[in-house]
Design a protein around this nucleic acid. Structure first.
Lengths: 293, 293
DNA sequence: TTGCTCCTCACGTCACGTGAGGTGGC
DNA sequence: TTGCTCCTCACGTCACGTGAGGTGGC
C-alpha cells in the first residue's frame, strides 16, 4: 500500500530539498507519481522513497545528474553495476590525487625541494610510431595510457624496434586552454633518411606523417629536430609544474625561447623504489641557441 | 633576476589556463607584475611562478578563491598555517564521509537492511536547557557538537540535573530548504508544573522560553508534549534518511501526521562497539492518534 | 475563512569555458 | 606586412538557492 505525499512531506522523508525535487522533476530524473492537472501540485508515492535515497547518495558522491539518470535507466543489473563501479574507481583515483596534492602543498610551503639541474641538448630528427589527438587536461593521463598500449601493440609485431623511451609532444593550447593537441610517440631504432619524403622543418609543431599503419590510429612519423633545454622531474605528474616553472623561468631569464611543442620523455622509475608516483619525467623546452652547431 | 612573461608563457610555466589567469587578475587574487596601459597586455614576472603553483594546488583541493585569497593575505605564517590546517581537516572529514557514503550505497543497492520496528509513544511536557538557531544542513553536525558542549557546561554547574539523553527539534524548513530552525536540548530532571508560566500547547513548534541563563545563548525551556511514532536508527547520521523514509512512510500509510517539529534523541552507542559511526539515534515523528489517552 | 503550502518564472552563485569581434606586437 | 597573440565583452555551464508574485487545499 503506497500513500501519496506532498512535495514537502516527500522532502522530509528523503532529505532532498524541495528545490532539488522540483529540479529533478524538471529534468526527468525523478518524476512525481502524480501531478494535479489544475493546480500543478506534485504527489509522490511512498514507494518512490528508495529511489530518492539512492539518488541522494549518488549526489553525495558528486555524480552528475545525467550520469545518475543513466545508471537508473540501465537495462540490467550488470550494466548498472558497471556504471557504479566505474564511478567508484574514478572517485578512488581522485582520493589518491587529493592525498598527493596535500603532500605536495606541504612540501611547497616548507620551501620546496632542491632546484633540479638544467642541461641543453640538440636532438636530431627522429622516426617514431605515434598516436595523436585533441586531448583535455583531465583526461590526459588515461589517454596516454591507452595510446602507449596501442603503440606497444604495434611494436610487439616489429621486435627490437624501440629506439628510446616513451615520449609525448604538447601543443601550447594544451596548457593555455587545458585542451589541445597531444602526440604520444615511441621512437624507432632506425635513422630517418635526410631526403625522406615528409621531412619537416625543425620547430614545426606537427610531426610529418610518413604512413598510417593498419592498426587504426597509429602512424609512422618523423619528429622534427630541436634544440632543447631539459630537466628531469621525479615524482607524480601533478607536480610537473615545478619542473615547468624552473625550466621556463630559466629559459626566459637566460636563453631565447623557440617555437614548437614541449616534449616529455617518460623514463623508467628509479630502480628499487617501486612506489607509485616515483616516475621520472624529462621535460624538454624548445630554445634557440646563439652558438650554432 | 626576474624576467617578464606574456600570459601565454606564464600559463605554460604554471599550468594555469589563460582564462583562469585572467579571472584571477579580475578578482585580484593574482595580479600581473605589469599591465601595458595602451594595449592592456598582462606581463607576469618569473618571480610570480611560486605563488601561482600554490594557488593551483589549493584549487586542486577545491578551496574557494576567496579563501585562497585570505590564506595568501594572512598576516603571519601562523595565521596562514591555521587556515591551511583547517581546510585540510575539513577535507579529511569529507574523505571519511565519502567512504561512508560508498558503503551505504552498496548496502542500499544490495537490498537494504532489515526494517526497524516502529513504536508509538506519548511524551509529556518536558523542561530542558536548550540552544536554538537557524542552521544550515551542512553545518548541522558541527553546530550540534558546539551546542551540547555549551549545554554540558551549564549542566556541570547544576549537578544531577540531566533528565535524559541529548535531543534536538528540527523544523520543516531544515529538511525542505536545507536551512532552518534547530533546537538542541538536554532534558532536566525536574517536573514542569502544569500551571507554569510559558506553558505551550502540544504541537507547537517553538518551545516556551522560561528564562535565559547567564551563559550566553543557553535557555531554560519547556518542550511541548507530543504523540510520536518512534524508531531507532543505528549507524552514521548520513544514513538517517533510511529511518526517516521508513517512519514517514509508515505514518503516511497507517496513521495521521501531526504538526510540529521532528525530534531526534542521541542515545549512547551500543556497549562494546566503540567504532565511530555506531551511533544510536531515536527519530520521533509527530502523529495524531485516534484513540485519545 | 484564514494562512499555509504549493506553484511558476526570473535571476543569482561559483569558477571558469566558449566563442565573437577587434587591436597590438614581433 | 602577415598572422599570431592578446584584449574585452557577452553568454553558457552545472545544480541548485533565493526571492517575487500568485493560486490552491485543508
Amino acid at each position: 500500500m503506497s500513500a501519496l505525499l506532498t512535495i514537502g512531506e516527500f522532502s522530509r522523508l528523503t532529505h532532498l530539498s524541495v528545490k532539488a525535487l522540483r529540479h529533478y522533476d524538471a529534468i526527468g530524473l525523478l518524476r512525481p507519481a502524480e501531478v494535479d492537472g489544475a493546480s500543478g501540485y506534485r504527489r509522490y508515492a511512498t514507494a518512490q522513497v528508495p529511489v530518492a535515497h539512492v539518488i541522494r547518495r549518488f549526489r553525495d558522491l558528486d555524480m552528475p545528474l545525467d550520469e545518475i539518470q543513466a545508471v537508473l535507466a540501465a537495462p540490467d543489473v550488470d550494466a548498472r553495476d558497471r556504471a557504479i563501479v566505474g564511478h567508484l574507481a574514478r572517485m578512488e583515483r581522485m582520493l589518491e590525487q587529493t592525498q598527493a596534492t596535500v603532500a605536495s602543498l606541504r612540501a611547497l610551503l616548507d620551501g620546496g625541494g632542491p632546484v633540479p639541474p638544467i642541461e641543453y641538448r640538440s636532438v636530431p630528427r627522429l622516426r617514431a610510431v605515434a598516436v595523436r589527438d585533441r586531448v583535455g587536461w583531465d583526461e590526459a593521463e588515461g589517454w596516454l595510457e591507452r595510446a602507449y598500449a596501442d603503440l606497444d601493440g604495434v611494436l610487439g609485431e616489429t621486435s627490437g624496434a624501440r629506439g628510446g623511451p616513451d615520449g609525448a609532444l604538447y601543443g601550447a593550447d594544451f596548457f593555455e586552454r587545458h585542451v589541445g593537441a597531444v602526440v604520444a610517440f615511441v621512437p624507432l631504432a632506425v635513422e630517418p633518411g635526410a631526403a625522406e619524403p615528409g621531412a619537416v622543418e625543425p620547430g614545426a609543431v606537427e610531426p610529418a606523417v610518413l604512413e598510417s599503419t593498419a592498426r587504426g590510429r597509429v602512424e609512422v612519423v618523423d619528429l622534427p629536430a630541436a634544440e632543447l633545454a631539459v630537466t628531469v622531474h621525479e615524482g607524480p605528474f601533478g607536480d610537473l609544474d615545478q619542473a615547468y616553472g624552473a625550466l621556463g623561468a630559466h629559459v626566459a631569464e637566460h636563453v631565447l625561447a623557440a617555437e614548437g611543442p614541449i616534449r616529455e620523455h617518460y623514463l623508467e622509475a628509479v630502480a628499487g623504489s617501486g612506489e607509485p608516483g616515483a616516475q621520472r619525467t624529462e621535460v624538454c623546452w624548445p630554445i634557440r641557441r646563439i652558438s650554432a652547431s
